[in-house]
Amino acid sequence: MSLVRAENLSKTYRIGDIDVPAIKGVDFAIEPASFVCFVGPSGSGKSTLLNMIGCLDHPSGGSLKVLDTDIATLDRRAAARFRGENIGFVFQDFNLIPVLTAYENIEYPLIMVQEWPAEKRRKQVLRLLEAVGMADQADKRPDQISGGQKQRVAVARALVSNAKLVLADEPTANLDHDTAYRIIELMRKMRDEFGTTFVFSTHDAKIMGEAELTFVLEDGRIPDGAGKGESPHV
């Protein structure tokens, strides 16, 4: 069973009186524990696609199932719950909460979303801090650490609630190349360690080469109809 399956998926935005199609009938499948990349120029629909996979947006047509759930059927509250239970996010601008330390940022979903008991929470956060190599920076606030370190914390936050799928929209766009490469390496290592599916978008040619399966988006379509490469479990 695919983790994500899209069939004839489309998304159209209405701007004023004009309909602007962002995704035009794409089909794809993402298998569990894969390391997948969507690439394409700016405006090709990468973010729109990730937003729909992340239950942040609804499709205009076709079908999109994530973990066998048709995301079109989720209302606002149910979508929030679904995201909290199954999906982690890594953002281009890291989006850490500035008043919380690295430890607290990672802990945040366990308190505000899943309400884990304190001791279980502490063990999980320490495990993730260790996994992303940030154990010695646990008490630092976002303004006290580098961009690469912030993104490590963000990856840990995405994984902390045992998400089955992590979506990363341009996670390396604000990082230098070496740091970007290390973040992609970290994400792959996390995939190996936790068995989590990672789906990221990028337009950096070197970074996209790190993905095991790449979907090229052009003007809201996947022209060759399939991904390049091979998902390990396909």
């Binding site: 929030a80 679904f82 909290g84």
Partner: peptide, 16 residues
């Protein structure tokens, strides 16, 4: 606003 978007995206309920 961006912070609200972030906490909402990671699953924080509107009530919280």
């Amino acid at each position: 606003i961006r912070e609200i978007g972030t906490i909402s995206a990671i699953g924080t309920s509107p009530g919280k």
